[in-house]
Amino acid sequence: MGRIVAGIRTSHVPSIGGAYDRGRDSTPAWKPLFDAYVPVRAWLKEMEVDAAIMVYNDHGADFFFDKYPTFAVGCAESYAIADEGFGVRPLPVIPGDLAFSQHLCRSLVYDEFDITICQEMRVEHGFLVPMHLCFEHGESWPVPTIPIAVNVLQHPLPTARRCHRLGQAIGRAVASFERDIRVAIIGTGGMSHQLTGTEFGAMHTENDLDFLERIESDPDSLLQLTHQQLMEKFGVEGIELIMWLVMRGALPDNVRRIHRNDYAPMTTGMGLITLQGDA
């Protein structure tokens, strides 16, 4: 049986990818962000993770509104790097774990989650930024990773409670897998940001800190929030935070916090929290 041993929540702001590709991780503006992930990478290496599950959203790189899934799960041997509109970033193809993906899909569907199963899937900054923040890579990545894309773009979105339930179902799927794998789950997106309207760029740092606190100590208090309430607290695009709840649902109730960071240089609260589930 598999075990989820590590949980990570992190923002996936695209400009982090730009800074990474241009080698700007040590500039004064970016150092506070990149430095926070150095111990995370070391910790993940120590945790000897066999596979990762990346809960992210596509921002129009591989899905269009002609056919827009609520939850889409990758089920392939590998995932190509998408062209998001400015060429393909120089990153290695993402290795998948086909048998694990197939098990995950079977388990989720039989558990009454109506996922879209993707045997071709190209991944983008929502997936890639957390990937290169959390894992080192040379020619290839150290762990196979399964993409799970959540609709946070086109309302109706899945409710906060449904996202948490998806996480719980992922936890059951991992536990029923035949191989004894150690799994990390990464929930991405947020924190507060607003990318449209006259309040473009508004952040809500107080609310971000409150969310970081609650997701660790009192996740239940977040599950009853409606999308309207969440957007009023975190901005229209801050609704991405519902993806953190998927990750929270997959972890055991009792977890130990390992790292925490927040940084808000431009238009988005860039939060980070890691939780260890083998306590």
Binding site: C75, A76, L98, C105, Q119
Partner: peptide, 8 residues
């Protein structure tokens, strides 16, 4: 899914 991958 196994068949589907094989016959892709």
């Amino acid at each position: 899914l196994s068949t589907s991958w094989r016959g892709y």
